[in-house]
Design a protein around this nucleic acid. Structure first.
Length: 955
DNA sequence: CATGTGCATGGGACC
DNA sequence: GTCCCATGCACATGC
């Protein structure tokens, strides 16, 4: 039935995967129905690329004869884009056509609409979930849609489970239809089968054959309830998810009987719970077979045989099952839904008389799998399924593993922010025994009857041995998939994204236990494939896995920060390192050079720009060239060194070389030269990579931190700058986006300063380090006091002239010194109670020195590593170098350390104490220069000077 | 010094 | 905005 006026609506779908871009109206896209959306409609799965999305389910509705929007022919209301957000939207009817949600008139009740719906052979869109739940859309007989191109018939039955009668000769269609009508009659009976209780949900796959006959959609404990009143809460949907799969089983069963039906288009359960896996999993079939052979033809079962599809057809299918109902109101996050296969359940169960009720699962974190031996339990899971505990000490818990071995854990909790944090302690032996590691999954189940807890595990079986580029491409694809599914899951409300990229791959791999085929995923840059190398439980390639795990962790296990829109995903075809290579300074940016640890760093005020990858070469003459590849002809062209090319570049853009400004121009480089260049380039990249790896981060951090802290204690951090280098406000240890006071300070130095109460990482680290040094010093001092008693008086007397001369600003002298006799003990005490002025610049302490004489030449730069080295020098060396003969001398000669650590540049301007410090920081651009504040800066300088050898001695 | 233990913290998921 | 939880960290304990 065409719409009045003879204008038939056409539904156009466009896959949001930019690499796919399939459209259902002509782009060759193929769509399958996904899971119901909470907000209405269904998610779609693109057959071409395997991705799913839902926000655009009903995105483009326009008229066949006139593209663009048009008013509703029925009610006159504007025919909006049918996005779920639209108000005056039209629902796509399962039978074809659209239904205005305002006037509820249908545009079509046609059963065969090949012409009106040229895309409907691919597109099976079916109304809103509430309508589906209410059955309103399916009061009529199953809708049949005749494929306009290949005579496939898509059948949408009352359960909204579409399946395809494929490859039917045109003449057979009618008989098939009749067959389906017969089936439809039988279906009504089956739908009246009793439903399962939620408590049985874990098991029916194994023990309840009738589960396969469950009516879809409405399987609830209180299934007498009118489904139409059942709001699409997550619970209802989640439960429906399970039952939907059962319904599919039903269909599958019946379909098998017809022997003409390939399979259900999709198992909504898996679509819901395993959405990511499914979409990614389906794609291989799509690539391998253009036909819709999603799963292999189910084995024929004998008449009357109990048919458990999940068991018999998809025993390996990893289905996230809403767990058995536990205590309390906690709705278990789908993240923790046990995704356990029947095979695994059987493996655990062993005894056929027992029933395994999957409770929850958890992907092991690094902490869980670490040596601490504590497995953090999801709170909701612990409270729902583990015995209640009231004391933090908890109680012992015995859990049996799949092999029957019993493990004894301590189930306890820690109070945490008015909440609890549940842990299983003592899991190390178990973890080790099972050879579990971060990324693997442990599954907790319950054996019924008896309620015994059992734990299974699932290794992170995804094993990828691919070049980095492909891995990154996988990451891309996975992230893309993750993005889409996260979106879907969020909307659905019952399925959240899996914890991350790793899992997205893992799930995809897990979904196919047979694992005998290549898994393809259409990522932005083409098909990426990997092999799941082994069956469940194996770990064929640790290295690759660890790589992935590491990468996934780096990316962020649950992080949505890294989830991106599909179009953004196009940009993520690079590793971070590769991305770095593409970052170039903005053309107009003028760098300022800073010296940090003898390395020059260019600092730009303007953000970098992305440039097209180019290769720089050096000729024998020392002349450098930049080579860039034409995007059209792939020839390499020489460019001036300074040229920065944006994303796309072709020969015609080569305005610098008229001879080579056309793709027809021969390549300057001979193939051999080119090969050499490319090889060198790759080698260089590898070297860079290995170099980067060798730069042990921890070591770097530790050394830098220590040096920083030491230098801060010395009070000479700010001295690193030299007259020839410009200022910087950002220490390289700080990451982009860091909001600590160091990083947010502009180069001018204006803006926030460290204050004594600053709690940024730098300040805290320095405080901690400083405290440690001081404590060590104090401890050592007290130990030596007795032995050095006789010398103490001497060094106290010697201390005064130098200390007062070099290390104290006039003001602080006035405010902090009650007596000219400042002993080390006094200073230590002051240090410990004093504040650290992180805005301090050591130059300030030379103020009064400057006042006493002409400004001195700026000393050579001192690196933090150098400072650290000094600090770590053996005490005797240090003392020798500084002309000290004893500890007394060392302590008395605090200022002498300035011989090792050059004094800060002298300020030429007259300032007050505070102003001078801040200004010096501003000028030096080293806001990380740290010292005690006015109450103790001079003491700190001196004490820090003393502390260095002390710390060295202590170590 | 290594390991274990208890708690704190902060990022991020979820509401 | 709240709360979860992965992890860091300080302190305790044992070797």
């Amino acid at each position: 039935m065409a719409m009045p006026g003879g204008v038939a609506p056409v539904v156009a779908m466009r896959c949001t995967n930019p690499a796919c871009g399939a459209t259902a109206t002509g782009g060759g896209g193929d769509w399958r129905k996904g899971w119901p959306l909470r907000s209405g409609g269904f998610a779609l799965l693109c057959d071409k690329c395997g991705l799913a999305y839902e926000q655009f389910v009903f995105c483009d509705i326009f008229h066949q004869k006139e593209s663009g929007w048009r008013d509703c022919s029925f009610c006159g209301k504007r025919l909006h884009c049918g996005c779920v957000a639209s108000k005056n939207s039209y629902d796509l009817l399962d039978s074809g056509g659209v239904q205005c949600v305002t006037c509820m008139k249908n545009s079509a009740a046609h059963s065969v609409v090949p012409k009106l719906f040229p895309c409907q052979n691919n597109l099976r869109i079916f109304g809103k979930s509430d309508e589906l739940l209410s059955g309103r859309k399916f009061e009529q007989s199953p809708s049949l849609m005749l494929d306009s191109r290949n005579e496939d018939i898509a059948i949408v039955n009352k359960s909204n489970h579409s399946f395809i009668v494929k490859g039917i000769e045109a003449g057979q269609s009618s008989s098939i239809l009749r067959q389906k009508e017969i089936e439809n009659g039988a279906r009504q009976i089956k739908w009246e089968q009793p439903t399962l209780s939620i408590g049985d949900m874990g098991r029916p796959f194994l023990t309840r054959s009738q589960s396969a006959l469950e009516p879809p959609q409405y399987t609830r404990r209180d299934d007498n309830r009118d489904p139409t009143t059942d709001s699409t809460t997550s619970e209802s949907i989640s439960e429906a998810c399970l039952s939907m799969s059962l319904g599919i089983a039903n269909n599958a069963n019946r379909m098998e009987a017809t022997s003409t039906v390939e399979r259900p288009i999709l198992s909504p359960t898996t679509a819901i719970a395993e959405g990511r896996e499914l979409t990614t999993a389906l794609s291989p079939f799509q690539h391998a077979q253009r036909a819709r052979h999603f799963l292999t033809r189910p084995p024929r079962v004998g008449e009357g045989a109990v048919f458990d599809p999940t068991k018999d057809i998809f025993p390996h299918l990893r289905v996230a099952r809403p767990p058995a109902e536990g205590r309390g109101r906690n709705q278990l996050l789908p993240r923790y839904w046990p995704r356990i296969t029947d095979q695994e359940l059987q493996q655990i169960s062993g005894d056929s008389n027992s029933t395994i009720v999957p409770l929850f699962e958890k992907v092991l974190s690094a902490s869980d799998a670490g040596r601490i031996g504590r497995l953090v339990l999801p709170k909701a899971c612990a409270e729902a399924y583990f015995p209640p505990i009231s004391q933090p000490e908890g109680r012992p818990l015995t859990i049996q593993d799949a092999r029957g071995k019993e493990w004894h854990f301590q189930f306890r909790f820690w109070p945490n922010n008015n909440s609890r944090m549940y842990v299983l302690e003592g899991v190390t032996p178990c973890i080790q025994s099972l050879q579990l590691q971060a990324g693997d999954t442990v599954t907790f189940s319950r054996i019924e009857p008896g309620g015994k807890l059992v734990m299974g595990f699932r290794k992170a079986t995804n094993t990828v041995s691919l070049p980095d580029s492909q891995i990154s491409a996988i990451a891309n694809g996975s992230l893309l998939s993750e993005t889409l599914f996260s979106t879907a899951n969020e909307n659905l409300g019952v399925v959240s994204g899996y914890p991350g990229f790793l899992q997205s791959i893992k799930g995809a791999a897990d979904l196919h236990p047979s694992s005998l085929y290549e898994h393809h995923m259409n990522s932005a840059d083409g098909d990426v494939s990997w092999l799941k190398a082994d069956k469940f439980g194996s770990r064929p390639d640790e290295g690759s896995l660890q790589f992935l795990q590491k990468r996934s962790r780096n990316i962020g296990s649950k992080s949505r920060r890294f989830l991106m829109d599909a179009e953004d995903a196009m940009e993520l075809k690079l590793t971070w390192e590769e991305a770095q290579e593409l970052l170039r300074p903005a053309p107009t940016a003028k760098p300022t050079v800073v010296m940090i640890e003898d390395y020059e760093f260019e600092e730009y005020d303007e953000p970098p720009v992305f440039a097209k990858r180019s290769i720089f070469t050096i000729r024998a003459t020392g002349e450098q060239d930049q080579w860039i590849q034409c995007d059209d002809c792939s020839k390499w062209r020489r460019l001036p060194l300074t040229v920065i090319v944006a994303s796309k570049w072709t020969c015609t853009d080569n305005s610098w070389d008229p001879k080579n400004c056309s793709c027809s121009a021969p390549e300057e480089l001979t193939p051999k030269e080119l090969q050499s260049v490319l090889q060198q380039y790759e080698e260089m990249r590898r070297r860079k990579g290995s170099y980067g790896l060798k730069l042990n981060v921890a070591e770097m951090d530790a050394s830098s931190l220590d040096a920083l802290a030491t230098a801060a204690v010395f009070g000479d951090v700010g001295n690193q700058g030299t007259a020839s280098v410009a200022t910087t406000t950002k220490h390289p240890r700080h990451r982009p986006g860091c909001t600590c006071i160091v990083c947010i300070q502009p180069p001018s130095g204006k803006g926030p300063k460290h204050n004594p109460a600053c709690t940024c990482n730098v300040c805290m680290t320095v405080r901690r380090r400083f405290k440690t040094l001081m404590m060590r010093k104090k401890q050592r001092q007290s130990e030596r006091e007795e032995a050095e008693a006789s010398k103490k008086i001497a060094w106290v007397n010697r201390d005064e002239p130098e200390g007062s001369n070099l290390s104290r600003s006039p003001q602080t002298l006035d405010t902090t010194r009650d007596s000219s006799d400042v002993t080390m003990v006094d200073k230590v005490a002051d240090m410990n109670k004093g504040h650290i002025d992180l805005n301090f610049h050591p130059a300030a302490r030379d103020d009064h020195q400057g006042q006493h004489g002409a400004p001195q030449a700026r000393p050579p730069p001192v690196s933090m590593m150098g400072l650290l080295e000094v600090a770590n020098r053996p005490l005797d060396n240090y003392m020798k170098q500084n002309g000290l003969t004893s500890l007394a001398g060392e302590q008395g000669g605090g200022s002498s350390s300035t011989a090792t650590v050059p004094p800060a540049p002298v300020e030429s301007e007259e300032r007050t104490s505070n102003e001078v410090r801040v200004a010096s920081v501003e000028r030096e651009g080293e806001p990380e220069a740290m010292a005690v504040d006015e109450a103790g800066d001079n003491q700190q300088d001196k004490a820090a000077d003393d502390a260095a050898p002390a710390a060295a001695a202590a170590t």
